[in-house]
Write a protein that binds this DNA or RNA. Structure first.
Lengths: 135, 135
DNA sequence: GCTTCACCTTGCCACGATGGGAAGGTCTAA
DNA sequence: TTAGACCTTCCCATCGTGGCAAGGTGAAGC
């Protein structure tokens, strides 16, 4: 890897698929890779490092757009940590919103499922709820 | 609505947008709507009821595919409630999986954000974590 | 009758993130 | 030299939803 590697190795080393590396390049999230004489993309340690950064951020659920901002801050020596923290807090809030939404769904479904016999009979409060109980 | 309505009214009455009603028709989730002489889609109470069913199911997070199955069961008088319950339980499990995943993300982010000063200085454990602390 | 406005039609494009596959070029080891 | 692993680009699919454009229709008011 000291001498640089092709996209497959970069993918393996970073955990980002080759497919997605090309995609990130195309949308401008990462710079255009250097190319070998035959046109193969070449990656050195810094690029692989960036890819690992992206992978980590994706694992934490940041969107590509947010990751673009995070990369900018990462590479900006004069950043304020408050900017990074603001991004993180916004993402936390968004996660919380989605978690709450899903927990609401789950609670309702559990309530309905508990009322459903789950046998060979057709009566089912789950369907009744979906159909609008009052009908 | 007794005399049937156009797609806009059906959308309003069901909570499903006109756009999505057309989409659901196109992908076969619902049958092809009757048409007026001039080609306008016409909806009667049963179709609107089906749309409301779909809306409810979407609100509970069921996928279109799952809703197709639920609609089939709903309209099948000889269904077993166990089939409905199985669908619901599978969806609950999926929700749980996603909730757990997001809660993991959230916990990590909260830990990192807590360690971040969030001031004008560049040092930031959030970026350090994304970059792989060991580097 | 005519205008106006709200509504309808179809068709295409977009998102976000990812995967699949085809058709063709390249590199390496046997 | 050949096989197989790897690379390239390009297009398509997912899932659910929205937007826009170009054109037709219906009803109300003048």
């Amino acid at each position: 890897m000291n001498a640089g590697c092709n996209i497959g190795q970069a993918a393996q080393a970073s955990g980002v698929s080759a497919k997605m590396i090309r995609h990130y390049e195309e949308i401008g999230l990462i710079g255009k890779a250097q190319r070998s004489e035959s046109g193969y993309r070449r990656y050195n340690a810094p690029e692989v490092h960036t890819l690992r950064f992206i992978k980590q951020a994706r694992t934490l659920g940041f969107s590509i757009k947010q990751i673009g901002a995070l990369l900018g801050l990462w590479q900006n020596q004069s950043r304020s940590s408050s900017e990074v923290k603001a991004l993180a807090l916004a993402h936390i809030a968004e996660l919380e919103r989605k978690i709450d939404e899903m927990q609401g769904m789950k609670a309702t479904l559990e309530r309905l499922a508990q009322g459903c016999h789950g046998d060979e009979r057709p009566e089912c409060p789950i369907l009744d709820e979906l159909a609008g109980r009052d009908i």
